[in-house]
């Protein structure tokens, strides 16, 4: 890639390494949920969207049906459609490049790319490709390490792995809670999920909370 600015390179690499390292947590979560090391590794390779991967294995771990796991994971990834919509005019990709760009269109690649906007259109493209492929590389390596590590540990509960996953979700949620209105919406969703747990099939209360987002987002 020609003339990548040092700044763009540094931004991309630091994000790729730190985010990629969390792949260890996903690898462990996948195995703890009952997926094989191969399946857990393929998850990161094929699905490649962190929160959704955690959601899918999390619903399975909680005893939910397969369909609930897939629906929860997919709903959680709908923001990626808006990211690809934002990136499309900057990247101007066609053919196989478009197919590759789609796979690495995630929170990190989009946000690093758009953060380079003041350095010109080249920097946006470089930020996207470097961050996306960097996270992809490290996320997959660390997933395999985490999966192998968890397999050798044995009982996930004895090592606290069953609490590490909800803790990771809380950590992902935390930065969004600065806004008071969002905090209320998050609280309502949590209570709603809790109340629905004994009433609905396992896994579906999570999906049902989308109704809270629809009601809250309907009006400004």
């Amino acid at each position: 890639m020609p003339h990548v600015s040092r700044r763009t390179f540094r931004d991309s690499l630091s994000v790729a390494l730190t985010v990629g390292a969390y792949g260890v947590a996903f690898g462990a979560a996948g195995v703890a949920a009952g997926f094989s090391v191969l399946q857990t590794s393929l998850f990161s390779l094929l699905a490649f969207t962190g929160a959704s991967q955690f959601a899918a294995v999390g619903v399975v771990a909680a005893g939910g049906a397969g369909l609930s796991a897939v629906v929860a994971a997919s709903l959680l990834s709908t923001r990626n459609a808006l990211y690809s919509l934002q990136m499309a005019p900057h990247l101007q990709v066609t053919g196989w490049r478009r197919l590759v760009a789609a796979q690495i269109t995630i929170d990190e690649s989009t946000n690093v790319a758009l953060a380079q906007a003041s350095h010109g259109p080249e920097a946006i493209r470089h930020g996207f490709w470097l961050t996306g492929s960097g996270v992809f590389l490290f996320w997959n390596i660390f997933t395999v390490l985490g999966a192998l590590g968890a397999k050798s540990l044995g009982n996930p509960a004895a090592w606290g792995l069953d609490a590490a996953v909800p803790a990771a979700f809380l950590g992902l949620l935390w930065p969004r809670l600065r806004d008071a209105r969002v905090r209320i919406i998050a609280g309502v969703a949590a209570v709603f999920a809790l109340v629905m747990t004994p009433l609905l099939p396992s896994g579906t209360p999570i999906i049902a909370t989308v109704i809270v987002a629809v009601i809250a987002g309907w009006r400004e």
Partner: peptide, 17 residues
């Protein structure tokens, strides 16, 4: 609505897990 979906799903996932 889309920007709120991660908020409600992540809260529900914390509770469920």
């Amino acid at each position: 609505i889309n920007s709120l979906i991660p908020v409600v799903l992540l809260s529900a996932l914390v509770v469920a897990q």
